[in-house]
Simulated scan of single mutants.
Amino acid sequence: MARNIFNQPPKDEKESAAPSPTMQKTAKLPGSVGGLRDSLREITANSIRDIEPDQIDMDGLRDRLVLEDTSIDELAESIRKHGQQVPIMVRPSGQPDRYRIIYGRRRLAAIRKIGGTVKAIVRTLDDDASLIAQGQENNLRLDPSFIEKSLFIREMQEIGYKPGVIQDALGLTRQGVSNHRVVIDQLPDGLVQLIGPAHGIGRRQWGDLAALSGKVDLVNSAKEVIAALPDDTPSPERFQAVYSACSHKARADKKPTNRGVTSVVKNESGDTVGTLTVDQKAIAIKIAKKDNPEFGQWLEERAEAALLQLFDTWRNESGSGS
């Protein structure tokens, strides 16, 4: 079960500052007054603050492939008309009056487009807790696509996050994390960035595309396909176009099976004597006994000697020696 990271006591500089004399006196009061004090502190800790966007650093792990797209413009227009309905979450930075984003990157990008302050919850969380909060909030609000989760997992693993933290962040089992990583490791660098997040395209489809990497240059093929598409082509459609083109190319490049060339050998009367089949691997002489049973019986008795005689003739004519 994911850890409860939303009820941790605040540790930012305002809450952790030395208590005032009034607060010291209140701290000595027993019973209901002390409970009221704790409740007020909790309300303060959970209050939403208005923060200037330029005070917030967009650091940490990227869980989205695209931030500057039409969905950001639509979100910005919605916030302009109706206001910011859902706060983002930040944590104090090491610098005064600066914060680091935990989640809400799309909302922050939208507000930066239209101007104004950002409504934000401030929490003092460590890296693990921040990562879990980021992953869980994104899963609840706008589920990242399969390939976005795969990239997120790879980046978390490369940085050194523990398996349990990664599983909590995305709500995946250990096997689920492994399934995402297997696919992303098979895809060449740069391919996902060309296609985009491709919402609705799952593990099997990405896996099928990855399987073509040994037969087709996926990146260059994707560049050619996407260059021919309209600029506003949705990411899932870009994926389908790339996959279709690469699949077709893989089939076209596959060498056809060489079944050889077969010719019918006939005598001077036009009767079929047998067939001769030649391919890159063998020469086959076939005599159908039903067509000429007597000749077939005769050849069967002499075939080995006849083949050796032909071999000796070739050797003498070619000068291959004895």
Score class of each variant (00 low, 15 high):
S71E: 09
S93Y: 04
Q85I: 15
D57E: 12
R112A: 00
P53Q: 07
Y103A: 07
E77S: 13
A45F: 10
I101T: 05
E74S: 13
T70E: 15
D38F: 09
D73P: 00
D38Q: 13
G104C: 00
R64S: 02
K113P: 04
R107E: 07
G104Y: 00
I101N: 04
V90G: 01
R112I: 02
A27C: 07
D54H: 09
R98C: 04
L67D: 00
I72W: 02
R105F: 04
Y99P: 00
G31I: 10
T70C: 09
E74P: 03
D50K: 15
A120G: 07
E68Y: 08
M58E: 08
Q95E: 11
I114E: 04
D59V: 07
I111M: 10
L36E: 09
R62S: 11
R106D: 08
G60M: 02
Q24L: 12
K119P: 06
L61I: 15
T117Y: 09
I56E: 01
Y99L: 06
S93F: 03
L67Q: 04
I51L: 11
T26G: 08
S39R: 11
R107V: 06
G115N: 02
M58I: 13
G34C: 09
P53F: 04
E42M: 13
I72N: 09
H82Q: 15
L67F: 03
G60P: 01
A120K: 08
A109L: 04
I111P: 00
G104I: 00
V90F: 05
P53D: 03
I88S: 02
T44P: 03
D38I: 10
S71V: 08
V118N: 07
R37Y: 07
R64V: 02
D57R: 10
I102S: 02
K113V: 01
V90T: 02
T70V: 15
K81C: 11
E42D: 12
R41T: 10
G94S: 14
I43N: 13
D57V: 12
K28C: 05
